[in-house]
Amino acid sequence: MNNPIHYREAEPLLRIQNVGLTLNGQVILRDVNAEILDVIRDVDEVDRVNKVKQGQVIGFLGRSGIGKTQLFRILAGLQKPTTGQVLLGEQGIPVERGMVGVVAQNYILFDKRTILSNLMIAATQAGDTKQVAKERAMTMLERFKLTDKANAYPKQLSGGQRQRIAIAQQILCNNHYLLMDEPFSGLDLVMKGKVSELIQEIAQMDEKNTIIVVTHDVSEASSVADELWLMGRDRDSDGNEIAGSKIKMTYDLKVRGLAWQPGITLTREFLDFTTEVKEKFLSL
């Protein structure tokens, strides 16, 4: 087993409390409970000098039709749950739209605006003046190596560039929370690796950054996440599914020593772990 990297957990950053959702008489979600704690890595295990800013990355797994999208919308404040609530930060502020950034699967941007304008509008929505918004937007473009695309339009970008701008836009507007819907979908191996790197980079931009990656892809989710949530449904005594999905299982990759370690995906432990998760995924 790999040696777990030392960390401690501090205050909760996000709490899902007894969330339930019924739409048109159909129970979609039931008693969904989960918590994301601020994970603090005191010492960089590589050089043992620098303190690492370590955000949280949650892999959120569930098969199609399980209600991932609805829970995703509830987490983003776009859908009010029938019961329960989602609370953000130490103060436990109920989530409202605009508090949590969302990067949709098809990387939606304002197609009629230039890239710079897309980023500036996000920054101004966060309360910046135009001047500050432009400076922050340009800094973000530099960080994502897309400065030369400032005056291009979204339709002129490749899929990968579009994804980075969609992420940058949400980072500029929303504080620390980012939901990513199927970021690995339809990508080849090289691109998947780049997206994983990007997610890690965002997570390490700020201690409080919290990224929830919604996906079917167990291996990719495990490669970026420090915690996995698996959605599923309870069964009655006859083995029939009970309506309403919930988070049935969580895996803490930090405890298993599978988080934050370069090259971990090539190890026997990691492959065994993903096999275990896949088997569980199929049984839920």
């Binding site: 983003a76 941007l109 509008i121």
Partner: peptide
């Protein structure tokens, strides 16, 4: 619409950005 809403836009702003301009 959801994309605009996640950028803290109110419904009038969403109408302009997504419906009119979009």
């Amino acid at each position: 619409f959801d994309h605009a809403r996640t950028l803290k836009m109110g419904e009038w702003h969403v109408l302009y950005e997504v419906v009119i301009l979009g």
